[in-house]
């Protein structure tokens, strides 16, 4: 799985939670919570969706690394061994 695949998985998970968002408008460096008005339940569902789709374990202490698109792609790429 390439970083682009991971990015698609992330965007897909976000649009399931917030169907009204335009994926093209997501700023890669800015927090999802602020951009997309996610609450803690939304964020938990986002983490669960990533876990389901990618089969990676994401400890709670790593949650901050998933706060924005750039960081999330890098973190999940390292977890899945993508290159």
């Amino acid at each position: 799985m390439t970083p682009d695949d991971i990015k698609r998985v992330i965007i897909d998970a976000l649009t399931r939670i917030a169907p009204e968002i335009d994926p093209a408008s997501i700023e890669p460096g800015a927090s999802f919570r602020d951009q997309l008005d996610l609450d803690s339940m939304d964020f938990l569902n986002f983490v669960l969706a990533l876990h389901d789709r990618l089969g990676v374990d994401i400890p709670e202490v790593d949650y901050p690394r998933l706060y924005a698109l750039d960081g999330a792609v890098a973190y999940l790429a390292s977890k899945t061994g993508a290159n």
Partner: peptide, 17 residues
């Protein structure tokens, strides 16, 4: 809660709510 969530699988974690 932090300790508890460390022990729990991702699907069973608790939120402060």
């Amino acid at each position: 809660l932090r300790k508890e969530n460390e022990k729990r699988p991702i699907t069973q974690r608790l939120l402060p709510a």
